[in-house]
């Protein structure tokens, strides 16, 4: 492959060109595009770099830095496969995009469209459920909420979040 960077540059994230983004003291919203995401089936937490979210019984989502080489599958998939022999691994990097929500109003913002009690979601844990009509994964890191949403729903969710954020910005 001759022009690797060029091919990577041809990618478009679901919220590119939508002017999505909120920046205010109490709330900020942004898309984190092109994360390397793989789903792993394993009874135990898989060995993997980056964030590892539990999605269900024996079901995990790994979130790591974007790939630097264009391929049918992100290298993270093989990396996780090698580290967790026998565990099914699927590249879902383009199956979901990531929206990062930070600020003191982050949790309350989502409560306008999500019936799950996120105020008690511990750092390092994730829930799957519905947010504004879209099925999502919501994970909490030390200082942010990460929403993983299917690209097809991303613009709807971004529009909804932007509107919901109005009173907080």
């Amino acid at each position: 492959m001759a022009d690797v960077t060029g091919v990577l540059d041809l990618r478009r994230s679901p919220l590119a060109d939508t002017a999505f983004g909120v920046t205010s003291p109490g709330l900020s919203l942004d898309e984190l595009p092109f994360r390397s995401l793989v789903e792993v089936r394993s009874p135990e937490p898989p060995t993997a770099p980056g964030l590892v979210w539990r999605l269900g019984p024996a079901w995990w989502l790994v979130d790591d830095s974007p790939t630097t080489e264009p391929a049918l599958e992100v290298p993270l998939a093989d990396e996780v496969r090698a580290a967790n022999p026998g565990c099914p691994v699927v590249d879902v990097s383009a199956q979901r995009t990531t929206i990062v929500v930070t600020g003191e109003h982050a949790t309350r913002l989502l409560a306008h469209g999500c019936a799950i009690d996120l105020t008690v979601l511990p750092v390092g844990e994730a829930v799957q459920g519905d947010l504004a009509g879209a099925q999502v994964v919501i994970g909490r890191t030390a200082d942010e909420l990460r929403i993983y949403v299917r690209p097809a729903f991303a613009r709807h969710l971004a529009a909804w979040l932007t509107d919901a954020a109005l009173p907080y910005t």
Partner: peptide, 8 residues
């Protein structure tokens, strides 16, 4: 069936 959640 927890379709929107853990799919159990």
């Amino acid at each position: 069936f927890h379709g929107s959640g853990c799919r159990l």
